[in-house]
């Protein structure tokens, strides 16, 4: 079996217009103190756009602006587009204030997806830091709805504290899935926390999967992804089988505004999902 993969699946849907389309907030769920999930469906009978796991949309809060938000729902749920958002700036704060029934603008989907087709039959290791679990969730949901297509599933999720764990109940339900290992860790906890305490990378050597066959999909801050690649290399999982998703300031989402450049890559168009060895060179320099 080949140990090398092509770049992310090329057949992912692509949006082209700079014009947003109106979407209605169908439901809203508070995940943590600063993170919430909204489900959207097209307003006025518009057509629902399909997407591939790992892709993102540009969500527009009226008069405030757009923000790049990864899609966190199942690609097979044709009814809604789900986004999990951390409140960090003006646009995400405006989105946070939207009650069900409110309308947002949406452009998308954009970007490269996780390589779901190419990794069939493999052990899959998902490594998530904080809200990094959100862009991984569509991939995880797709795996569980086609469980037989994949090998062992390992989900390693880190958060700042127990109160910052997103998708908490779902993580626990995934623990019950066959041939699946879910390990949670936080940076600090109280005595009620029975999972790990420590950085998420310390979970890698403990997890049970076959490094000779596994593929890792990693999402979190850049530094976490760097350390993850180091740990993976230590246990024998080569970086050509590590996929990461990057985040940068994005304005246009179609590779025209120049903001999200990372070396030669436009993260919005060539990424956000990259094979690690393709971008490692640029990871090793600061302030790229």
């Amino acid at each position: 079996m080949s140990t090398c993969f092509d770049d992310p699946d090329p057949e992912a849907p692509k949006a082209v217009s700079m014009l947003p389309e109106p979407y209605v907030v169908v439901s809203r769920n508070q995940e943590t103190a600063d993170t919430f999930t909204i489900a959207l469906r097209p307003a006025d009978g518009g057509v629902m756009r399909s997407f591939a796991p790992g892709q993102f949309n540009m969500l527009y809060a009226f008069g405030t602006g757009e923000s790049a938000i990864s899609i966190s729902g199942s690609p097979e749920d044709g009814g809604v587009l789900v986004h999990t958002i951390r409140r960090v700036g003006a646009v995400t704060s405006a989105l946070d204030r939207l009650a069900p029934g409110s309308v947002v603008g949406l452009r998308g989907p954009f970007g490269s997806p996780w390589p779901m087709q190419q990794v069939r039959g493999r052990d899959l290791v998902f490594v998530a830091g904080g809200i990094g679990l959100a862009p991984l969730r569509p991939a995880i949901l797709q795996v569980f709805s086609h469980r037989a297509d994949y090998g062992r599933i390992v989900i390693l999720a880190g958060a700042r504290s127990p109160a910052d764990v997103i998708f908490h109940d779902e993580l626990h339900s995934w623990m019950q899935e066959p041939d699946t290992e879910v390990q949670l860790t936080v940076d600090r906890a109280d005595a009620d926390w029975h999972h790990h305490v420590g950085v998420v990378t310390t979970l890698i050597p403990r997890a049970r999967f076959d490094p000779a066959n596994a593929v890792a999909m990693v999402c979190g801050p850049e530094i976490m992804m760097r350390f993850t690649a180091v740990e993976m290399a230590r246990i024998g999982l080569p970086e050509a089988r590590i996929f990461v998703t990057l985040e940068r300031n994005m304005k246009c989402a179609v590779g025209l505004c120049g903001h999200c450049q990372f070396g030669p890559e436009f993260i919005c168009r060539d990424g956000p999902v990259f094979r690690h060895d393709r971008i490692r060179h640029w990871f090793s320099h600061r302030e790229v």
């Binding site: 757009e66 304005k251 903001h259």
Partner: peptide, 21 residues
């Protein structure tokens, strides 16, 4: 050089907004 950014503005009624590049 081709890089651009965007600015969002709304009028005082709050019902008309524009996005400028």
């Amino acid at each position: 050089c081709f890089c651009t950014t965007v600015e969002d503005v709304a009028d005082l009624t709050g019902d008309h907004a524009e996005r400028w590049r």
